[in-house]
């Protein structure tokens, strides 16, 4: 018999109660059980960062966590940021600086960066590169992402 474990998770402010198999990866839980498909999966071994989410406010890889480990915790995914009509300042900055092409890596970057900019209001280029170093992008060469982060830092400072 397959063991099922009951978990309570708050995702983007919405509480969910679900029964899951212990081996279910958190990334699969978010994408397929909760249908929040903005979080992507590119490697399932913790390297590419496409699956990055906020877990209790910190950016983590959802592909190397089990859904059961999220019991009692809070998660934010890319869907928590903005809507197509009302983008978050970070998302606006990505658009204005052409920091995405295929966009597959983008949600992971956004979640890494919202976490980072929370603690670092005015990073240098080099610090930004180090902050996004754990997220892979095959399309952009990263340069426009660095530009977008700088712009976002400005926008977010103006907002707060």
């Amino acid at each position: 018999m397959t063991q099922l474990v009951k978990i309570n998770v708050t995702v983007n402010g919405v509480p969910y109660e679900r029964e899951v198999e212990p081996r279910l990866l958190l990334s699969d839980f978010i994408r397929h059980d909760l249908k929040l498909t903005g979080t992507h999966v590119g490697c399932e071994h913790g390297l590419c960062g496409a699956c990055t989410i906020l877990f209790d406010g910190q950016s983590v890889r959802s592909c190397i966590m089990f859904a059961v480990m999220a019991d009692g915790h809070k998660i934010e995914t890319v869907e928590s940021l903005g809507t197509p009509e009302h983008l978050h300042p970070l998302q606006e900055a990505f658009m204005e600086k052409h920091a995405l092409q295929c966009g597959f890596c983008t949600p992971g970057f956004l979640m890494t960066i919202v976490d980072y900019l929370g603690d670092n209001k005015n990073p240098t280029d080099e610090e930004i590169r180090e902050a996004i170093d754990g997220n892979y992008c095959r399309c952009t060469g990263y340069e426009n992402i660095v530009e977008a982060v700088k712009l976002a830092a400005k926008k977010m400072a103006a907002h707060s």
């Binding site: 990055t52 983590v60 976490d115 754990g134």
Partner: peptide, 9 residues
């Protein structure tokens, strides 16, 4: 050690 996202866990 790895990247911040890994060190968070």
């Amino acid at each position: 050690i790895a990247h911040p996202q890994i060190r968070a866990r």
